[in-house]
Computed example of a mutant assay.
Amino acid sequence: MTKKGIHIVFLFLFCFQIYSQSKGDSLALNFNLKYNKLPFEVNKKYVSSKKDTLTVETFRCYISNIQIQYDDQSVITQKDSYHLIDSDIPDSFKFYLTKKNDKIISKVFFNIGIDSLTNTAGALAGDLDPTKGMYWAWQSGYINMKIEGKSSSCKSRKNEFQFHIGGYLSPYYAMRKVELTYEKKATQINIGIDLYNFFANLNLAKTNSVMIPGTLAMELADYSKSLFYIE
């Protein structure tokens, strides 16, 4: 191996070590997709409280503006935090926030979706890249949460349901803020996302498609807050 090649290998190992250390020293936020408090599986058949048999093929959701509040009232905010959770990408459910400490965490705050300022900034990179399938157009902005699948209750083409929840213009501003009480020390905060709660609010025979901002999207955005809980 040439000297140049050796230098490249050492540089790679050094960067990997620094990256691993930064992860190990950080407080992690770990989301777990559930259905009625049990681990969720894509394409598995489930039954809702409305007796609808369904399978979910796609779940995507933006988590943004994460804040950790400690018992001394200090607050850590992750700046420019826009994380896309995707059921097809297991690694997308966990992210690292700030350095660990011995303080008691009292509350966790985050938004479901993308704020209006970011929406008006136009399509961006990273998790906000339009190729992620979560961007309508500049008039409608980002989709905050996407849930797609099938149910025999749906009278739609191929029995499909499609819920694309978003909107950043008044009166259809669909971003929602979640506040969760924690009250303990932690190196990792585990948060459940229970899709059972989402379908408990729906009659799929009547409501199986939301594809634009509007009144129904606002209702579904309200429902989405009930999905999140501390495990």
Rank of each mutant, 00 (worst) to 15 (best):
M1R: 09
T2L: 07
G5Q: 14
G5V: 08
I8P: 12
V9F: 10
F10S: 00
F12E: 10
Y19N: 04
Y19C: 08
S20W: 03
Q21A: 15
K23D: 04
G24F: 12
N30G: 06
N30P: 03
N32Y: 11
Y35F: 00
N36C: 08
K37P: 03
K37H: 04
L38V: 01
P39V: 05
E41C: 11
N43V: 08
V47K: 13
S48I: 14
S49Y: 02
K51H: 06
T53E: 11
V56K: 05
F59K: 06
F59A: 01
R60H: 01
Y62T: 03
S64N: 00
N65A: 01
I66Y: 09
I68D: 15
D71W: 14
Q73L: 06
S74L: 09
V75G: 08
I76R: 14
I76G: 03
I76Q: 07
Q78V: 13
K79A: 14
D80N: 15
S81N: 00
S81H: 04
L84H: 02
I85Q: 09
D88W: 00
P90M: 05
D91F: 00
K94W: 08
F95N: 12
T98I: 01
K100I: 10
N101I: 13
D102Q: 13
K107S: 04
G113I: 09
L117H: 04
L117Q: 13
T118M: 07
A121H: 01
T131A: 11
Y135M: 05
W138E: 10
Q139P: 13
S140A: 06
I143L: 13
I143D: 05
N144H: 09
S152M: 08
S153F: 00
S153A: 04
R157Q: 12
R157Y: 13
K158T: 11
I165H: 02
A174F: 09
A174E: 15
M175W: 08
R176A: 04
R176W: 12
V178A: 05
Y182Q: 15
K184G: 11
T187G: 08
G192W: 00
I193V: 15
I193P: 09
L195H: 03
F199G: 03
A200R: 02
L202N: 07
S209C: 14
S209Y: 01
M211C: 15
S224D: 03
S226E: 11
I230C: 02
